[in-house]
């Protein structure tokens, strides 16, 4: 089954269920794109480019956001 490495963890997708773009991945997890930073294979993908960004199996994806901190 095709996989993505999301935040360090391998995540498998059933055939046909693999998210085609970065936007579809965010939608899968109900994450609002304006509050998330997406890095794919060590490259930051700006919010307006997420829809056009085609995901490939085995890509390393970091999804980060601001949280409370000192």
């Amino acid at each position: 089954m095709p996989r993505l490495i999301i935040n360090g963890e391998a995540t498998e997708f059933a055939d046909g269920d693999f998210p085609p773009t970065a936007t579809s991945l965010l939608e899968r997890y109900k994450l609002a794109p304006d509050s998330i930073i997406v890095e794919i294979d060590a490259e930051i993908v700006p919010a307006d480019k997420l829809g056009a960004f085609t995901l490939k199996p085995e890509s390393r994806i970091e999804l980060v956001r601001y949280v409370g901190g000192g």
């Binding site: 509050s35 980060v64 956001r65 601001y66 949280v67």
Partner: peptide, 18 residues
Amino acid sequence: VTVALRRVDINNPADDVL
């Protein structure tokens, strides 16, 4: 005001601090 940057818990995404 300071904030930190962390990985999102994709199964339990927290409220957006901003």
